[in-house]
Write a protein that binds this DNA or RNA. Structure first.
Lengths: 95, 95
DNA sequence: TCAATTTGACAAGCGGCACTTGACAGACTA
DNA sequence: TAGTCTGTCAAGTGCCGCTTGTCAAATTGA
């Protein structure tokens, strides 16, 4: 059921939140209560959605913190699957 | 639909994974490929489930990375809701 | 009972990352 | 032309997951 290639949440913020409202990064950062650089890094996909940011996005644009963090989780997991074979684990069979 | 008071994933690892199999923290850490301290901190609820750890838990005990990380997300979010009123955001109305 | 194992904790250190303020040059705009 | 917006760099802070090494206390087993 996992998405084929999950988008970075930052791009979603840009396309689904900022652009439809004609909001600049500077203005949106001001509303969110974070620095312009911090939001810029997010929307340019150089930073992820933190718990704090998920709450801010929800308060400002709606949806739920679970949704925002779920997008981030899906993205992180997709990236991690690239190196999944590097993670060596002894499967546990029985006691 | 959020859980009332989500358990820390570390407790679940201890009760649902280690104890049923009679696994010691030391032995399980060895199987997981992490240090004893690292797993100890998790099961004693002093550390969270990272993406890396979620993959290790899945490989060793089953379930899915999404499930493990989802448990962590639910826990983190529950904790964050305590200070949710401290996060000041200007709700965005219109352009 | 004695010895080995297990445990939780502490310390020091490393790397990553989200966040801040300050600054800069380039682009766009009124 | 002047002001705004942008991406990015730098420097610094704090948190956290992870490591190795160590320790005392508790548990376990021959």
């Amino acid at each position: 059921m996992a998405m084929h290639n999950p988008p970075h949440p930052g791009g979603i913020v840009r396309r689904q939140c900022l652009e439809p409202l004609g909001l600049t990064v500077t203005a949106a950062a001001d509303h969110l209560g974070v620095s312009r650089q911090s939001l810029s890094e997010l929307v340019n996909e150089h930073a992820g959605v933190s718990v704090d940011m998920a709450i801010r996005l929800t308060k400002a644009f709606g949806s739920t913190p679970e949704t925002w963090l779920g997008l981030q989780m899906a993205y992180d997991l997709w990236q991690a699957r690239r190196r999944i074979d590097d993670i060596k684990v002894d499967r546990i069979e029985a006691a």
